[in-house]
Amino acid sequence: MIRLWQRVGKVRALAVLVLVAGLAGGYVIADRQTQHNATAEPVKAADAASLPRSGASPSAAPASSDQASAQTKAQDAASAAAAQAKAAEDAARKKKEEEASRSTRSAGPPSYPAPASCDVYKGHRNTGCAELLAAGFGLDQMPCLDKLWTKESGWNPKAHNNSSGAHGIPQAVPGKKMAAYGPLWETDATTQIKWGLNGYIKPRYKTPCAAWGHSQSTGWY
Score class of each variant (00 low, 15 high):
Val28Asn: 01
Ile29Phe: 12
Ala30Gln: 14
Ala30Ile: 09
Ala30Asp: 09
Asp31Gly: 13
Asp31Gln: 14
Asp31Val: 10
Arg32Ala: 14
Arg32Glu: 10
Gln33Phe: 10
Gln33Cys: 09
His36Glu: 15
His36Ile: 09
His36Met: 13
Asn37Gln: 14
Asn37Met: 14
Ala38Asp: 14
Ala38Glu: 15
Ala38Ile: 07
Ala38Lys: 11
Thr39Arg: 07
Thr39Asp: 05
Thr39Ile: 10
Ala40Cys: 09
Pro42His: 05
Pro42Asn: 11
Val43Arg: 14
Val43Thr: 12
Lys44Leu: 15
Ala45Phe: 04
Ala45Asn: 14
Ala46Gln: 11
Ala46Asp: 10
Ala46Ile: 05
Ala46Cys: 08
Asp47Trp: 06
Ala49His: 09
Ala49Thr: 02
Leu51Ser: 07
Arg53Val: 08
Arg53Asp: 05
Gly55Met: 06
Ala56Trp: 00
Ala56Val: 04
Ser57Arg: 02
Ser57Met: 01
Ser57Gly: 12
Ser59Gln: 03
Ala60Tyr: 05
Ala60Gly: 04
Ala60Pro: 02
Pro62Phe: 05
Ala63Cys: 00
Ala63Leu: 06
Ala63Asp: 03
Ser64Pro: 02
Asp66Arg: 08
Asp66Gly: 04
Gln67Val: 09
Ala68Asn: 03
Ala68Trp: 02
Ser69Gly: 07
Ser69Ala: 07
Ser69Leu: 11
Ala70Arg: 00
Ala70Leu: 01
Ala70Cys: 04
Gln71Ser: 05
Gln71Tyr: 00
Gln71Val: 00
Thr72Tyr: 01
Lys73Asn: 08
